[in-house]
């Protein structure tokens, strides 16, 4: 599996249905026949997760917390309720916890067992989040993992690693970068990245003039 990225679509056309695609098709046709899933509902779900839900939801929450101290307080004390104010509600009935980064403490989120992830606010997880190396190493060697992901953490900053579960999902509230005083919520949301909300990166100011 070296060339996983570009040409899946082209290959789909080259070979008949096979492997997991064949099994998924067979399973779906059986479940539809038994009235257990509705193909229209499946399409809707896929569309929602592919195009509508993404890290932008989380970015809006972070930007609001940066600009509205009362919201931030609610977010840190009862994240599930505060996030529901935006209409982002977990389908799995999970509770959300928001972890605040400070100059002295940085939080990193992982799911060591599978890949529990706050879908309603971040969409679906990136491929590295689901990988065994990340799942295992984030706990053993968080500093090394962050360094590899491009974010070196000074020795005097404490790193806290949080293991997600089916019932509990975490979102990191990154530090607001200096130089963003007076920015609007929308402008702030635009610079918040998915990786910053997983905790493996910090929010950086875009290059000059991009604002």
């Amino acid at each position: 599996m070296s060339d996983h990225h570009g040409d899946d679509h082209a290959r789909e056309h080259d070979r008949p249905l096979s492997g997991p695609a064949l099994r998924a098709r067979a399973l779906e046709s059986l479940l539809v026949e038994k009235g257990l899933v509705d193909p229209k509902a499946l399409d809707e779900l896929i569309d929602t997760y592919q195009t509508k839900v993404g890290p932008r939801n989380g970015a809006k929450i972070v930007a609001r917390a940066w600009t509205d101290p009362a919201f931030k307080k609610r977010l840190l004390s009862d994240a599930t309720a505060a996030i529901a104010e935006f209409g982002f509600i977990g389908r799995q009935g999970e509770d959300m916890v928001v972890l605040e980064n400070t100059p002295k403490v940085r939080n990193v989120v992982v799911c060591t067992l599978c890949s529990c992830y706050p879908w309603p606010v971040l969409g679906l997880p990136p491929v590295w989040y689901k990988s065994a190396p990340y799942r295992a190493r984030a706990v053993i060697d968080p500093r090394g993992v962050l360094k590899e992901l491009g974010s070196e953490v000074p020795e005097d900053v404490e790193l806290r690693v949080w293991d997600s579960t089916a019932e509990l999902r975490y979102l990191v509230l990154p530090e607001r970068p200096a130089g963003t005083e007076g920015w609007s919520e929308d402008e702030l949301a635009a610079i918040v990245t998915r990786d910053a909300m997983i905790g493996v990166a910090q929010v950086k100011l875009p290059a000059r003039g991009k604002r």
Partner: peptide, 13 residues
Amino acid sequence: VFSAPWEAQAFAM
């Protein structure tokens, strides 16, 4: 998000 349609199918089911 998904590298092939069947992945989305499995997810949605």
